[in-house]
Design a protein around this nucleic acid. Sequence first.
DNA 1: TCATTATTGTTCATAATGAGAACCAGATAT
DNA 2: ATATCTGGTTCTCATTATGAACAATAATGA
Lengths: 156, 156
Amino acid sequence: MNNNDPSNLLKKQTENLVFLMHEIHKCFEVRKIHEHFRFKLPQAELTCLMAFESEQNLSFKGMAKKLDVAKSRVTKIVKSLLGKGLVRCISDPVDARVRLISLTPAGKKKIKEINTFKQDIHKQLLMQMAPEDRVQAIASLELIRSSMEIVKAQLK
Amino acid sequence: MNNNDPSNLLKKQTENLVFLMHEIHKCFEVRKIHEHFRFKLPQAELTCLMAFESEQNLSFKGMAKKLDVAKSRVTKIVKSLLGKGLVRCISDPVDARVRLISLTPAGKKKIKEINTFKQDIHKQLLMQMAPEDRVQAIASLELIRSSMEIVKAQLK
DNA sequence: TCATTATTGTTCATAATGAGAACCAGATAT
DNA sequence: ATATCTGGTTCTCATTATGAACAATAATGA
């Protein structure tokens, strides 16, 4: 009994965790689909645009690394974004092979819109909680995230 | 100042939350891809198999509702799973239109394997935390999940 | 009972996401 | 100067997914 009780607790917590993570993940997916309809852009193009939050110039290779996709995928995504006038390409004066991708004014406006929406929806999420709980929730997420990173690293 | 400070806190928390949710979501995706390689099954087929955790017989329509995909998608997924000998179909004696999908012994073995892995990885996640923190983390996730459901409902 | 309507599953066309191999052009190094 | 390396494009292929059109079967109603 002394041995069984704590292991049983862990098992119950595990089952609970599996369920909660799955549900949260589904909600997250719903939000992504919603963004796709709201901003009339395929999800891959949305994530591509968001890559310019931290940089303003990206080569195709750099983008591929950042999005963790094949170069050929970037070619396709950027081609579509070019057609929509959201990005532009200039060839690198230092290296003629390299094409630098950057946002057009329309693209900048778009990511501002997307960001506003994203911030807003997460703010709403926090507002569902009592202010004390918000601090705790974020601390827990931080702990979960770092734990996930460790488990992920062990996986490979 | 008195007015600015709390709103500034909320903004910082929001940014933090956006980041954390995004990172956690990425980890979750990595796990799904890992499962796909480990169990040599496309992700859609994996989720289809997992639907038999709570039921042992499912019509194509029932499966479509459960997986939240179109009927035609189910046709394709089940066709592939049939070919792999993981599910079988019997026509409903009550209604000749209906084909009931159920697991073969091989399919049952497979979902047991998948479940063991899934439980194990979540258990490992909990083990990264101090026992007191586990309770808190799960409580936080529960709160986050219910908050997400509310925000999601407002979205539509 | 028989015709109309509704439901179940299949097939087909289409689109998005993504990988990887083969390839060309421009850069680096020996 | 030639060989090698690197960045980007193109092509083929697989996976995920929808929705329309369709065939077979069930249910309803006059």
